[in-house]
Design a binder for these strands. Structure first.
Lengths: 213, 213, 213, 213
DNA sequence: TATGAATGAGTGTTCATTCAT
DNA sequence: TATGAATGAACACTCATTCAT
């Protein structure tokens, strides 16, 4: 809970942050396109035009939303692998847990959706999000794999893995929750458990011989 | 009815398809909300109001887009499991291959993205997509698992799996391709290979004992 | 029941009459403005464009509606005063009865409303309606008054009466029925009775001396 | 709130009235349906969208027109009966005079015409008009009759009268003036005089015995 | 005669943005 | 700093009407 950066930003100027907070809530309910400046302003308790004192454009408001959300997520996300303890399996489970907690269940999932939604016109935001979140996540996973290889728990073929594969079900779950939750809900706890189990042990009955491709 | 002009008739029949094709292209570039009936009509080379001769509403146009684009996709995958041949592993690989070909690399990924992006504003479309596509896909995967259990290749614990887990990396890849491709490309062939390998055999070195949670 | 003119028109060409009938029904339900050629055509069981074979314009359709309805009304309206029998009071009651039957409860009320509605842009129709219906009605009332004066039942001051006054409550009732019926219904029978009673005897208690203006 | 610019504030307060005035004029020329927000705005010298700052919907504009135009009308008539002076005949004449001045000759006739014309498409407006205007008018007439009964000037049978009958010629005159004026004008002064005379004393010569129905 | 195809002009409404105060 | 007033551009949708067959 490194609340230094948060404190730093606070109190310097409360208004922009209130606007961003309101915009985040609107975004999480209606998406970017359907969030109107009017509704954001109303939620922030200010006039619609006052928003323009702090942000030149609606897009810029949402840029700030992404930025702040990402920063908060990063700040709070301790680097787990830095000081590895226990088995690879334990470590893996812990990393995946963190991903679910932060990216899937947390605020960042809203941002992820927004990026998917309007990413094509928000290249700048996409790049920022990638640099701040995804690349760090990737590094974490790569460290994790390296650890497993060193410890001998992982087959040497794991070195060829695309690190994104290991978290991809989590991202899927985040997306699912945002879009299809109402129509066919997903039991996150069970899904996470499945995720880890299958990733670690595979689907095939223990003892089944490996394919030789 | 008999002497209706061929040319005219041909046109009449072709129109909806042309409109749907134009709408698909617009959607892939701008999403649903930002696709206007005007731009769709222009792309189809007709007047804006002509669209209303074939579709009562903008939503219905995109409903048709979703339906036409994705229906064939799933049907094919379903066929595969219908007449299972070979081992579970082979079957699994074949289903996943189909999913990648259709959902990830094919046109359907565009639809998927649009729904992820604007699903909250298009609840009806989401419900439709779920009913037509996801539920069928889910059934296919469930059949696949059942087959594996029957053949003895799958551990009995596979019966508890959320079927969505098995395809989740593919969905992830589809989203990634649409959003982050430019910033960090994804080697689809390798990713798919990883996907199948890890799902089938797990990450842990063969012989490593299963966790007892 | 002079059905000569009706027969004359019939069978010569059934289509236009079917269209006019459909238009009349639409008009009585939705008024002229909200009656679309599409709904009229649908009701007549023909294509929208077929209407144009018989009527150059939507307005012309409704001109025909007014014409036909008025003609029917006139044809069937026997001239009561022509051969007067009984007292003025009896005659008056009979004339008023006819007005209620034809203009208030009959089809013509629909036309009346339409004229009120779009009369300002349908000067031609208004003039036609006046010439065919109102002027004849006026003549009838004037004959009635003359009869009453001759018979000595009417005060000589009745010669100064605007004949329209005598039927004005009936017209009011027609309008009321068309507009406010749902919100505060009007008991036509009672209203008609009141109408005749008050017109004949006035509101004041019998024996009250007349004002001297 | 204190230092809000006077000019600006004045404007803000004046706008709705200006819009309503413009709408009234449009309505009197083209009716409700054919009055577009564009033409109303143009007449008021503002942009089409500015209307939406003051009225959420086109219907609300016309609701305001109806309210503003007719409210004063009835109130005044009600005041008259509130403090009755003189004979019933005098009072009746005064109420009827007010109705002619306000409803027939004044602005309110335009509203009445619009409702008659387009009432079926404007059910809400009709209900509103009834609640605000007609029910009050009815109450006024009923008070008037009650007064006449108390004072002994009215025959006890007047208690059975539909109150609407007493003003119905005035409404007729209003409609006539709007629709048939050009084709056969109506001398309002004379018609009003006739109205009151006949209503009070009836058509039949004094001394003629009442009918026994 | 009859119709299906097509469209242009127009309608109410939304919303990001500008401007004067 | 803060805001209320005002607007232009856009959008989905309707409908009378024209045209080719």
């Amino acid at each position: 809970m490194a609340n230094t950066s948060r404190k730093r930003r606070r109190r310097k100027d409360a208004r922009p942050e209130e606007i961003v907070r309101a915009a985040f809530q609107e975004m999480s309910e209606k998406g970017i396109a359907r969030s109107t400046l009017g509704s954001i302003a109303a939620r922030a308790g200010i006039s619609r035009t006052t928003v323009y004192l702090y942000f030149p454009t609606k897009q810029d408001v949402f840029k700030a939303v992404v930025r702040e959300t990402v920063e908060r997520t990063i700040d709070e996300a301790a680097v787990i692998v830095g000081t590895p303890t226990g088995s690879f399996a334990e470590l893996f489970r812990r990393v995946i847990d963190t991903v679910y907690e932060r990216l899937v269940e947390g605020e960042a999932s809203v941002v992820l959706k927004a990026l998917v939604a309007e990413g094509s016109e928000q290249a700048e935001l996409v790049a920022f999000y990638h640099a701040e979140i995804l690349s760090k996540g990737r590094a974490t996973i790569e460290q994790l794999i390296a650890f497993g290889l060193r410890s001998g728990e992982l087959d040497e073929r794991a070195g060829d893995l695309d690190p994104r594969l290991l978290v991809s079900p989590a991202i899927f779950a985040a997306i699912w929750g945002l879009v299809f939750e109402r129509v066919e809900p997903l039991d996150l706890k069970r899904f996470r458990q499945n995720h880890v189990d299958v990733m670690l042990h595979g689907l095939l009955r223990a003892g089944t011989s490996r394919e030789q491709p």
